[in-house]
Amino acid sequence: MKNFKINHRESSGLDVLDLHGELDAHTASQLEESLKTLISSNKSNIIVNCSKLEYIASAGLGVFMAYIEDVRSSGGDIKLTNMNERVYNVFDLLGFPTLYDILDDEREAIDRFSNEN
């Protein structure tokens, strides 16, 4: 049974990944593939919308850690949005809010990208 999936779409010229379901050590490879595909096509302004993400374990956070430097070094960023409280709590416990842009709404991420570029 698949308990995780990712949809890719474009919004205001930015790439948005919508995460659905449960992100753990088993499903993290799917996120990794999606990010790698974007990065290899020189896409570096990436929004990860977590509104349908129900669960995350540290293996999921590890994927964001592995690719953020590549994206930032090419002038972009990965911004995370629309997390539920349960998911945000895991990022918060590990101190991610000081290292990553974690925003309440996708719209804020779009605005922030347009101000940065």
Binding site: A57, S58, G62, M65, A66, E69, L93
Partner: peptide, 24 residues
């Protein structure tokens, strides 16, 4: 202890966070 996430990112390392979470 709380892992140094900033350092791990710079070194492109991941992992080592689970034990800290379990204790929290």
């Amino acid at each position: 202890n709380l892992p140094d996430i900033r350092k791990k990112i710079k070194e492109k390392k991941r992992g080592g966070m689970g034990v800290y979470l379990i204790h929290q």
